Simulated assay, not measured.
Amino acid sequence: MMETLAKIAFVVYTLLILGGGCIAVGAHSLVRAMVGLISSLLGVAGMYMLMAAPFMAFMQILIYVGAVCVLIFFAIMLTQADDHGVEAGSRRPGKSALAALTFIAPVFVIGFILIKFQPVSIHIPVEVPLIEIGKGLLEDYPVAFELISVVLLAAMAGAVLLAFEQKGKKGRKV
């Protein structure tokens, strides 16, 4: 019974990830694309829960959904785009086909690599204590841990830069 529920949850999270990715790639509006990104990231958090990694799921929601997506939304709102959105121009005929190819190609490449070069089974512990994850981040990989703050800083600086650039364009038209 539990195995069936886990398989159903896996399918639901997979559909959430793929559906959110399709929305993020194919949306006409930046806000709708961001909603697709959020649903995809929530699906990844669900996958972490299926792998019995609740801390990673919480960090996925806290950092990516909570911080990065809020900063992206802040940047979209600061640019004060017109009602139709900056990206509302006409679509080229091959854009949808190219988007689909870009979406599907990594699946085939990764699948080919996994089938052709199957890794030797490695003994992985069922649960890694949280203190070891913290030590690994702060002792072994402090640069990777600090890059998270650089990503957030770059997103915020980009939002402010876009806001000033849009404000300057509107000031010149008057």
Results as ranks from 00 to 15, higher is better:
Met77Asn: 09
Ala52Gln: 11
Val109Gln: 08
Met51Thr: 05
Leu71Glu: 01
Tyr64Cys: 03
Gly66Leu: 04
Ile115Glu: 08
Ile63Ser: 05
Ile115Gln: 11
Phe58Lys: 00
Leu50Ala: 05
Gly89Leu: 08
Glu87Asp: 08
Val65Thr: 10
Phe112Tyr: 15
Leu78Cys: 07
Leu50Phe: 06
Ile122Pro: 00
Gly46Thr: 04
Val44Arg: 05
Ile104Gln: 01
Gly111Gln: 03
His84Leu: 13
Ala45Leu: 01
Gly43Val: 02
Val107His: 13
Met51Asp: 08
Ala97Gly: 09
Gln118Phe: 12
Cys69His: 03
Ala75Leu: 05
Cys69Asp: 09
Gly94Val: 07
Ala100Arg: 05
His84Met: 11
Ile76His: 06
Ile61Asp: 00
Ala52Tyr: 11
Ala97Lys: 08
Val65Met: 02
Ile61Gly: 03
Leu62Val: 10
Thr102Arg: 12
Val120Arg: 09
Phe55Met: 10
Leu78Phe: 08
Phe103Ile: 04
Gln80Glu: 14
Ile72Pro: 00
His123Gln: 13
Val109Trp: 08
Ala75Cys: 05
Met47Tyr: 09
Met51Pro: 01
Lys116Arg: 14
Arg92Phe: 10
Pro106Tyr: 01
His123Thr: 13
Pro119Asn: 07
Val65Tyr: 01
Met59Trp: 05
Val68Arg: 04
Val107Trp: 12
His123Cys: 00
